[in-house]
């Protein structure tokens, strides 16, 4: 049974008065991630918004062990932490959580992540995907959606984002899931499930960013949900190669109702302000194809 909001634990690992922007989706998610792991964890974090979230010396904003590492090295650092805990006999009941942004995951960090996945290292890797380099001022990443204006794609990005969860799935790791900061219970359940699996577990989490995407901070959750309603973000999990839609995406697929047009989603954000109609059509077609792919896989007998 999926967890309900009232069943979520009140853990308090994420402290108020932190340095995140108002309305930052990371905060919503990190509260659930740390709660799901009950704080029995070591986080490792590369250069990213999360570094800033974690706070500047000598005060930390998150009450769990946290190891900062260089930008490309998250998955290798997590491999080392996991190996070090095993070698020193301290791995019992501890989860190693690597948490990096989309650039740190899909661009500069993909080599270390791919290596760790191929070795099936024992940690959870959570990518909080805010779809550009937000910490350095909204430059494009390999995860920036087509049509989005960034400070390095002034006319809108021409390419679709990488399909990072499917890249990870192709490594044959035991657990791959997608999530959204706007759906905390779905995220909580996935992290709890991942905690109980050994090997590399990958969770790719859509994380709306008010300042980078250009929307009012009050709309972080609204737009996160809207992304799921359009099918641009699909909530699912893959265990041993079997894909299952979850949460709102599962409900959407079962309902048979039409998804919200992508046009409604892009209209909410200034990054899509100068999006050409043909680009919008291309993104809609891309979303449709992907949606059909996941619905089809969801329907396959396991």
């Amino acid at each position: 049974m999926p967890t309900k909001i009232l069943d979520l634990p009140d853990s308090g690992f994420v402290l108020p008065g932190n340095r995140a922007c108002a309305g930052c989706g990371i905060g919503i998610a990190l509260r659930q991630v740390t709660a799901a792991l009950e704080g029995r964890m070591v986080m490792t974090v590369p250069a990213s918004c999360l570094t800033v979230f974690g706070g500047m010396y000598p005060i930390s904003s998150v009450g769990v062990p946290w190891v900062n590492v260089a930008f490309p090295s998250t998955a290798a650092a997590a491999s080392g932490i996991a190996a070090g805990l095993r070698a020193t006999g301290r791995d019992d009941g501890m989860t190693v959580l690597a948490m990096a942004g989309d650039g740190g995951t899909a661009d500069i960090g993909i080599q270390a992540l791919s290596g760790a996945a191929e070795r099936n290292e024992d940690f959870i890797y959570l990518c909080y995907d805010n779809e550009a380099y937000m910490n350095t001022g909204t430059q494009r990443s390999g995860m920036t959606p087509q049509g989005a204006r960034t400070t390095t794609t002034w006319a809108g990005k021409r390419e679709n984002p990488k399909d990072m969860p499917r890249i990870m799935e192709a490594h044959g790791i035991p657990y791959v899931a997608t999530a959204s900061a706007a759906f905390p219970t779905d995220l909580f359940d996935k992290v709890v499930k991942a905690k109980g699996i050994r090997g590399l577990r990958y969770i790719h989490m859509n994380t709306p960013c008010p300042s980078g995407w250009g929307f009012d901070p009050k709309d972080t959750v609204r737009l996160g949900k809207l992304a799921v309603e359009t099918g641009l973000v699909v909530l699912y999990e893959v265990e041993e190669g079997v894909l299952r839609l979850t949460g709102r995406s599962a409900a959407l697929a079962r309902s048979g109702k039409p998804r919200t047009p992508v046009a409604e989603y892009v209209a909410t954000q200034t990054r899509f302000r100068s999006m050409a109609p043909e680009t919008l059509n291309a993104v809609q077609a891309w979303a449709d194809t992907r949606w059909e792919h996941f619905v089809r896989r969801d329907a396959e007998p396991s």
Partner: peptide
């Protein structure tokens, strides 16, 4: 010992950094 056959030198030293941080001799 744990032997981590990494995919690059960057990761080789990073694994040592992670393991050394939690107290292992690397």
């Amino acid at each position: 010992a744990e032997f981590v056959a990494v995919e690059s030198e960057h990761s080789a030293l990073t694994v040592c950094i992670g393991a050394s941080t939690v107290g292992a001799r690397t």
